[in-house]
Every structure is written in C-alpha cells, then in structure tokens.
Design a protein around this nucleic acid. Structure first.
Lengths: 145, 145
DNA sequence: ATTCTTATTGCAAAAACTTGCAATAAGAAA
DNA sequence: TTTCTTATTGCAAGTTTTTGCAATAAGAAT
C-alpha cells in the first residue's frame, strides 16, 4: 500500500519518461485511495491539492501508469476503476450475485500461465486478474436457473 | 458462429424482455461480423439495413446482450470490442506489444476453475477471459528491459 | 381482435473520454 | 549554470458513450 516515490520515479526516468508534479500527485492519490477508484474521484482529490491539473492529464496519466503497470485498471459493469498495483501478484474472485470479492493467490494462476506458455508459446504476464462467478453462499441460494 | 434467432428470442422473452427488430438486427450483425467488432462498426452495419436505428440503441443493446451473456465485451487498449458469445467457451491471449490475438480453449481454464472451486469453494463461471502477455515473436524482440 | 402494461426506442442534451497543438518544463548534455 | 531536446501539460475542440423523457410497440391479458 505504501509506495516509494523514489523507486517509481527512477523506474520512469530509466525508461525515458519524466517525473512531473502532476504525475507524482496522481500516483499518490491512487495510492492513498482504497481500491476501485474512478477517474472522476481521482480528479477531485488531485484538484484538492493542485487545482490547476487538467482532467486530460488525469486520463493520460492513468493510461501511462497502467502501461508501466504501476496501476491496475479494472472494468466492473460500465465503469473503470483504478488502483495501485502493489507488490505481489494476486487475483480477485467477484461474485456475480452479491459482488463479494475474494482473493486468490498467484500459484494456481501461475500453473495455468506455465501451461499456456508450454503449449502455445505465449507468455502470459498478468498480476491482477478478475474472475467472475458465484461464491459458496450464492451458489446455494441461486439453485434455480 | 451461426445463431438460432428463435432460441435467443425465447431466452429473452422467458426473462421478461422483448424481441425488437432493432435488437434482432444488432445481434445478427454481431453474429455475422468477425471477432472484435467496435460499436461504431456495428452501428454502420446495422444502419446499412435499417437506417433509422439510433446509436444509443446500439449501446443499450450491447449492454443488454452482454448482460444476457449472448455477447462478449473485451477491452483492448482503450477500445471496447464485441463478439458473439457462441456455444463453446474460449479465451483470448492478447499480445501487449503487437496486439495480436490468439485463442486458447477451455480445458486449461477449466482445470484452474476446478482447482479454485475445490480450494476456495467459489464457482468461477466465465467463458471468455482475456489474458495479456507477449507472443512468441514479441518475446524475442523485446529481450531487453 | 382489442386493450393494457411497460420494455424499448429515437431524439437531444449531457457526460465521459480523447486528441491536436502551442507552451512549458524535466532532465541530459555542454 | 546554461543550453538543448523533447516529454508532458493545459486548453479547447472533437469524439464516444450515457441518460432523461415522451412516443412507440412487444407481448400478455381480456
């Protein structure tokens, strides 16, 4: 959850990108916000500290940070949500019925990724996947199709 | 690929929804189009047959058809793509570098889903997952981080 | 057939997101 | 430090997607 600005900064600079105050602030805000933050919410929190930041800058940086994989984008329903990527890969199970979110760790995913790599020569490289389905409770309740 | 209008119609009616000409046409167009069709392309093809259909109707029906899981939405980069869900579950591998799309079938996924169900009592229920990574060619090209 | 309920549509306006471009400023080089 | 290159920004205009609402029409009930 805590993020080290210096590391992120170096990561960017090493790749020829620049560390601007706007960019830092946007990353800070995403980091400080809980999971699943909308662009609009990020915009407002950024503006509270630095009112001149333009909405276009927010969107461009969300794209940028996702591309660097410092930030993860998730689409739920019609909306996009952003959250800090964090250290270790982990994945979510979202119940279609009650929307409860469980986590699964990377090991089972990794097994799948390895299999895909062996069989199709494609290196899957994702550390935040969202799988939808039914949790134990809802599976029992929803026992009629 | 082929779709049975009658079955889809009944599926909708059973659930209290209505089968309108617009809706049928939109589904037909998605069905006839290849994979990964944009809303704009769908709109144009629908208009070619039925010029009065409004773009808002396209969007509303895309949502609707996704909710019924007759159609699958995929986000690649910044754009949304839609395709017919079809019969058998299958999944996509999208190269982060060249955006090439490969398919994987359901068996390896199913293994993962089963494992998740045994270990966490969560029934994953997805028949179209998109995994990002690097294809064989791009993995070789991008051999410097 | 006719009536009735309400899901769905088209339209127009709004909201969300993207893009072109000139001005700015981060960071490397001198 | 100063200069130089060019990534990034703000702005304004453009494009894409969503929404409120009155009119329409699908399908059930009569």
């Amino acid at each position: 959850m805590t993020h080290n600005t210096k590391d992120y900064g170096n990561l960017m600079r090493e790749r020829g990108f620049r560390v601007t105050p706007q960019r830092q602030l946007i990353l800070d805000v995403i980091c400080a916000s809980g999971n699943h933050t909308t662009p609009e919410a990020i915009y407002k929190r950024v503006q509270a500290k630095f009112p001149s930041v333009n909405l276009a800058t927010i969107y461009r940086n969300l794209d940028f940070l996702c591309e660097l994989r410092l930030v993860v984008a998730t689409q739920i329903g019609r909306k996009m949500y952003y959250e800090i990527a964090g250290e270790s890969p982990h994945h979510h199970l979202v119940c279609r019925n009650c929307n409860k979110i469980e986590q699964i760790d990377h090991t089972n995913m990794k097994t799948l990724f390895n299999k895909v790599e062996r069989e199709q020569d494609f290196t899957v490289d994702m550390d935040h996947i969202t799988l939808f389905g039914l949790c134990a409770k809802c599976r029992q309740k929803t026992r009629r199709v």
